[in-house]
Design a binder for these strands. Sequence first.
DNA 1: ACCGATCGTGACGGCGCGTCAACTTTGCCG
DNA 2: CGGCAAAGTTGACGCGCCGTCACGATCGGT
Lengths: 213, 213
Amino acid sequence: MSDVFELTKSQRGKREETKASNRQAIIDAARNVFADLGYGATTVRDIIRATELASGTFYNYFKSKEEVFQALQDETALRVRPRLRAERIRARGFEEFITGTFRSYFDFVKNDQTTFIAVRRHREIPRVRIDTPEVIAGFDELRADIETAIENGVLPPADPDLLMASMVGVAFEVAHQMLVRDDISADDAAKFATALFLGGVQALPKKPKAKKR
Amino acid sequence: MSDVFELTKSQRGKREETKASNRQAIIDAARNVFADLGYGATTVRDIIRATELASGTFYNYFKSKEEVFQALQDETALRVRPRLRAERIRARGFEEFITGTFRSYFDFVKNDQTTFIAVRRHREIPRVRIDTPEVIAGFDELRADIETAIENGVLPPADPDLLMASMVGVAFEVAHQMLVRDDISADDAAKFATALFLGGVQALPKKPKAKKR
DNA sequence: ACCGATCGTGACGGCGCGTCAACTTTGCCG
DNA sequence: CGGCAAAGTTGACGCGCCGTCACGATCGGT
C-alpha cells in the first residue's frame, strides 16, 4: 500500500521533465554537430549554439565535450551490447563466436550514426593528420610490398588495404597493451601478432606469465 | 668551376645555423612535453615555455602543435622505415615478412620515445576517456566470454587482453576502411576480419570487387 | 661602414572555457 | 491562494590560449 504512488521517476513533475528534455536536447545537438564537424573540431560552444540553452546551462548537465560524447556512447552501448552478446551466446564454437561478433558490429557501423562517429573519431586523430611525407612513404612502401607479395602468389589475393589496416590495427592495440602492462615484452607482443596472422586464433601462443586472479 | 662553393646548406653562415638550431630546440622541447603531459593535454604555449624563444618565433617554424608532432614523426620515420623495410626484403616467404615486421616494430615501441608517444596518443583519445560505464560493461562482457571460452577449451589458452585488443584493433581499422571506401560492404568487412582470426592470412578472401589499374 | 633582407620579439585582439551572482521557475505548505 | 525555500537558468566575466603583426635587432653582401 505504501508504494502506490511510486510512479516512474521520469514523470513526477515539470522539474524532472524539463531536466530530461534539456539533457536529451544537448545529446541530440551534440550528435549532429559531431557528425557534421567531426569530434576534434567541435567546441562546447558549437553544441550549445545548436541548442536553445544558455552557456551556463550546459554545465549543469555535462562537464565537458568529452562527457557529452560519453553520454552518446552510453546511449548507443545499451543498444549495441545486447546484440553483440546475443551473437556470442548463440555461438556453439569459436568460429561462430568470432563471425557473429564481427558481423553484427560492422552492421552497426554501417547503420548507426553514433557508432559511425566513434569510428571516425578513432581515426581522425591518428590518420587524417599524421600523414606526413615520411610516414606516408612508409605506408606506401608496405602497401607496395604487400601487393608484390600478392602478385607473386606469396600472399593470397586479398584486399591489400584491408590487410594493411588489420596489421596496423593489431600493431597499435597490442603495442598499447604492451605499454600499459609490464609483463609483456616486445618479443611476446611480436609472437602473438605474428601467430594471429599466420594461423589465426588457433595458433595463438599461451599466455606468457602466470597472472594472479 | 662555378659550383666550387656549393657547401652543404647546413653550414653556410650563422643565419642557417640559428634556424636549424631553433627548429631542433622546438622539436626536442615538444618531444619532452608530449612524453610528459601526453599529446592532447599539451598546448603550444607549453612547448614554447620549454624553449627559450618568444611565442612569435614558434610560428616562424611551425603552424601548430600538430605540425611539430608531424615533424617529430618524420624524424622518427626516417629511422624506423629502413629497419622495417629491411625485414621485409630479407623475408623469403610471408611468414618472415610478417614476423620481421611485427618484431622490429614492437622493438621500436619499446625503445623509441617518439614511437611511444605516437602509440600513447593513438589510444589516449579513444580508450582513456571513452571508458564510460556502459562501454566498459560491454568490454567486460566480451572479456568474460573470451575467458570462459578459454577455460572450456574452445579457444586456446592465449592472453585474453591481447586477443581482445587484436579484435578491437581490427574492428576499428577495418570499419574505418569501410567508411572511407564505398566498395566494401559490412558483409565484406565481416568476412575479412573473421577469416583472419579463424585461419590467418592464408584464409583471407579474395578482394571483393575489381579495382582499376 | 652601410643598407636591405631576414628573423626574433612580445603585446594585442579574438575566442573558447568554466564560473558565479542575480534572477526565474517550481514544488510545497500553511 | 499566497508566499517561501529550493532548484534551475541566465549571460557577463575573468582567464588562458591562439595566431598575428608592427617594431626592432641581427646578419650578409657590397
